[in-house]
Design a protein around this nucleic acid. Structure first.
Length: 428
RNA sequence: GCGGGCGUAGCUCAGUUGGUCAGAGCGCCAGGUUGUGGCCCUGGAGGUCGUGGGUUCGAGACCCAUCGCUCGCCCCA
């Protein structure tokens, strides 16, 4: 373990390699593939934006803005922030590109996010999210579709059973505002009994107190006015239609009237797929509706709904990583074979095979390496084989060997192991 | 920002109340086997015991500080 700063990753950052990277890729690629099937187009926005983009969209008093952003002034004197989440960036892109001329727009994204926090299990300073955003669709079906697509991804990853879908509504801006007023009035009367954290929240984000873990707070909250009682007719109908659409797909959910999302821009639907397997970090895929966000960013008054999922958190839930590809290992014996193997390796790679050819070493050493790499076949190429125009194949699992004429090699290999790149072999 | 736990080889860990305590297993390298991996045998490399200070005749063990990791709070994916 090195203590030299140059040999140490920055706190809260991680190198991804080997099995860990394969899990990570599986999550990102499964997410992408399924999202595309649901009609979301991939979008890649910059990993930094003008600080204002996040400050405005997340709310000036949110924790993310007040203490978690990586913000710096660039050489041109502009305040720049590494994105702590990507919804704001996608909305900004929609405005910048004028995509709101043709709505709705449905996007999928994958990439790194940055938050200056104390690292914990499933929580890093540089972490990755996949997410989808549906912009310009006011219909409750858009909320249900986003949730359904998320559930589909979790299912495909084999982690759906490990999660619970919690669902709530915050109502439209009007309902939410009236409720907030009533809640604050109720809590003010009991302010002295609230926890220190919650007294602060009373100023900044009173709805969050509903979700407090403090026992005293919970007792007070238990008798607080219910948001459901403040929903206007529009909001009730909206929520009912979201649930109806989920029911039709038999997507199970638990209604949690205390589920509140941390960011200011949420309205109506709020949801979280949570798990108990990740310690304190229960939320694995979460989001909601954010009507008003695009307008906040200076765009037209266009609604939106979406979610983000933590790639590292999902990776931790994956039962097993996909195995690495099993290469073919060429084992030349003798100088002439050495030269020939170099060309053969290139040819087989062109055919779509993953081929391992060590730079040097005795056959025994190369075999050991082939074994370690999980090679499926070893191709022996010695003086004898060279002279007769054949290759000796050895199946590493069984130890069975056979001789194959060089002219028949491509076909034999294809039938033995298939090829990774059928298009390439068709061309050949 | 606030609390708890932990830092001994690349990895997982032993190290008895301070007195051959610098070790094991795995991994790695080499050889046994210069045309054949896994198993086996032999040998080898690799550690300022996170760092700095203190207590002591003596510290990997005790004390203080510091850095790092980790778990939790806050917040969130």
């Amino acid at each position: 373990m090195s203590s030299a700063p140059t040999a140490r990753p920055v706190r809260g950052t991680h190198d991804l390699v080997g099995e860990e990277l394969r899990r990570h890729r599986a999550v990102a690629e499964t997410g992408r593939a399924i999202a595309l099937r649901w009609g979301y187009q991939e979008i890649a926005t910059p990993i930094f934006e003008h600080t204002e983009v996040f400050a405005r969209s997340l709310g000036d008093v949110s924790d993310i803005v007040t203490k978690e952003m990586y913000t710096f002034t660039d050489r041109g004197g502009e305040s720049i922030t590494l994105r702590p989440e990507n919804t704001a960036g996608v909305c900004r892109a929609v405005i910048s590109l004028g995509l709101h001329q043709q709505l709705p727009q449905k996007f999928f994204y994958y990439g790194p996010m940055f938050r200056y926090e104390r690292p914990q299990k499933g929580r890093l300073r540089q972490f990755h999210q996949i997410g989808i955003e549906c912009i310009g669709a006011p219909e409750p079906l858009a909320d249900a579709e986003a949730i359904a697509a998320g559930a589909h991804i979790l299912e495909e990853l084999g982690v759906l059973e490990a999660t619970t879908l919690e669902l709530n509504t915050l109502g439209d801006l009007d309902s939410r505002a009236r409720y907030r007023e009533a809640l604050v009035a109720y809590l003010r009367g009991r302010e002295a009994k609230l926890s220190a954290d919650s007294r602060l929240r009373l100023e900044r984000n009173p709805l969050r107190i509903l979700d407090s873990k403090d026992e005293g707070d919970r007792a007070i909250v238990a008798e607080a006015p219910l948001l459901l009682d403040f929903l206007n007719e529009t909001s009730r109908a909206f929520y009912a239609r979201v649930k109806e659409a989920l029911d039709r797909l038999a997507i199970a959910y638990v209604e949690n009237p205390r589920l509140v999302r941390g960011l200011d821009y949420y309205t109506h639907t709020a949801f979280e797929f949570t798990t108990t397997r990740l310690g304190a970090q229960g939320a694995v895929l979460a989001g909601g509706r954010y009507d008003g966000l695009v307008a906040t960013l200076g765009g037209p008054d266009v609604p939106g709904v979406g979610w983000a999922a933590g790639v590292e958190r999902l990776s931790l839930l994956l039962a097993e990583a996909p195995p690495p590809p099993r290469p073919l290992a060429i084992v030349p014996i003798g100088e002439a074979a050495e030269a020939e193997a170099w060309v053969l390796a290139r040819d087989l790679r062109r055919l779509g095979h993953a081929v391992e050819l060590a730079f040097e070493g005795r056959p025994g050493k190369r075999m050991k390496r082939a074994d370690r790499l999980g090679a499926r076949l070893a191709l022996f190429l010695g003086e004898d084989e060279l002279a007769r125009g054949v290759v000796k194949l050895r199946a590493l699992d069984s130890g069975r060997e056979e001789e194959v004429a060089r002219t028949a090699l491509a076909e034999r290999l294809a039938s033995l192991v298939g090829v990774e790149n059928p298009a390439a072999s068709a061309r050949a």
